[in-house]
Design a protein around this nucleic acid. Structure first.
Lengths: 191, 191
DNA sequence: CGATTACGGTACCCTCGGTAACGAAAGAGG
DNA sequence: CCTCTTTCGTTACCGAGGGTACCGTAATCG
C-alpha cells in the first residue's frame, strides 16, 4: 500500500492550495468558474500537477466542497420532532453553504459519467444515518413512532428535498420551509 | 408578432428532425452525447439552423425531453392513498423515461446559467398540482386529511424525491419504492 | 552515487459551444 | 416575368476548456 520507497516526495502544499482555490472559485463564480486552468493559476501550480493528484476535475471539486462528514455535530436525544428538525436543519445548512451549493449542480451532472462520485457523496451522510436509525429504533420501541418507519427512507427524503431545493428553488429553503418539512415528516411518523 | 410578410419561410421539417435527433441521442449516449454538431448531423442539417430556432443547447434539449405536460392522464377521485400512489407513480414514470432521465442531470446543471429553464420545467407539473390541490381540499373538508396539508409541499416532496432519485439511485425507484413513499406521505396526511 | 519519482513548465491535441459571412432560395410587389 | 427583400442552409472560423506528452530538474531512498 503506502509504498514509501524512492523518488521525490509529493509537495503537500499543492494539494491544500488546490482545494482552497476550488473553494474560492466556487464561492465567487459558481461551478462554471472552476476550470482546471483557473484552479492551477490560483493555486500557484500547473494543470499536470493537479491531474497527478485527482483523476478528473469533478473529483477535485467533490473533495474541495465536501471534505468530510456532513452535519457531524448532530445531537439527538430530545423530543422526536425536535430531533427531526435538527436533522432537517443540519442537512439544509450543510448543503446550502455557498461552496456546497455552488458545487452541487455540476457535481450531480457528472455523477452519470463518474459513477464512483455518487457513492462518495451519499457516504457523507453515513454518520447522520446511523444516529437517526438508532434514534428511530428507540422511538419505535417506546411506541412513539410508527413501526413502518425506516431511517433510510426518512433521511433520503430529507436529502432529496434539500438537494432538489438547492438546485431549483434555493431561496425558498428558509426556516419556515424547515418547519413545514419537519412537520410533514413528524406527522408521517405518528404511530 | 406573426409577421408573415416577406422572406423565405422556415422549413418545418428541420424542427421535428432536430427534436427527434436529440431524443435518440439522449437515449443512446446520455446528455454527454448531445452536442450541437451531433444533433445537426443526425437531423440532416447544420448548427446555425439550430441556433436560429433555439437560443442555446439546453433549450433544445428541454423542448425535446419535456414536450408537454407531465403525467397528464392522471385520474383522481378514488381512495386518497390510491390517488396519492397514482401521483407518485405517474411522476416517477414520467421522469424515469429513458429520454427524460438522460436529460435531467445536464438540464438541472444548466438551470443556474439559464434561469428561464427552471420555471419552464416546474411548469410541466402545473396540471398535476391543480388536480392534487383540489383533491386534497375535498379530503380536508371531508375530514380525511390533516388540515395542515398543503398540495404544493406534498407534490414538491414527490418531485424532489423522484428527481434526486433519478440523479443518484435510479435503480432503486421500483414499485416497492413507490409503495414506501406513498405510505409515508399518506401517513403524514392522517388527520 | 545511482535509481526512482515527482516536480514545474511549455506546448500541444481534440472537442465543443457559438458566430460571421456568403451564395441560394422562396415569397411579395410590381 | 422580374426584382427586391428576407431568411434560408452551408462553410469556415474563433475562443475556451479538458486532458496529455515531453523535457529538464530537483528531491529522496537504497
Amino acid at each position: 500500500m503506502g509504498t514509501r520507497s524512492a523518488g521525490r516526495p509529493r509537495d503537500p502544499r499543492i494539494e491544500q492550495a488546490a482545494l482552497a482555490a476550488v473553494r474560492s472559485l466556487l464561492a465567487e463564480g459558481g461551478y462554471g468558474a472552476v476550470t482546471v486552468a483557473a484552479v492551477a493559476a490560483r493555486a500557484g501550480t500547473t494543470k499536470p500537477a493537479l491531474y497527478r493528484r485527482w483523476p478528473a476535475l469533478p473529483h477535485l471539486v467533490h473533495e474541495a466542497a465536501f471534505p468530510g462528514e456532513l452535519a457531524g455535530e448532530l445531537r439527538l436525544g430530545a423530543d422526536l420532532t425536535t430531533d427531526l428538525a435538527g436533522v432537517v436543519r443540519g442537512t439544509r445548512d450543510a448543503l446550502c453553504d455557498p461552496v456546497a451549493a455552488a458545487a452541487l449542480p455540476g457535481l450531480l451532472a457528472e455523477v452519470s459519467t463518474w459513477p464512483d462520485l455518487h457513492a462518495a457523496m451519499l457516504q457523507r451522510f453515513a454518520g447522520v444515518f446511523r444516529a437517526l436509525d438508532e434514534r428511530l429504533r428507540t422511538a419505535v420501541d417506546a411506541g412513539e413512532a410508527h413501526p413502518d418507519a425506516r431511517a433510510d427512507d426518512l433521511l433520503r427524503l430529507v436529502i432529496d428535498a434539500v438537494i432538489s431545493g438547492v438546485l431549483l428553488t434555493p431561496d425558498e429553503l428558509d426556516d419556515a420551509w424547515v418547519e413545514r418539512l419537519t412537520g410533514t415528516l413528524a406527522r408521517s411518523l405518528r404511530p
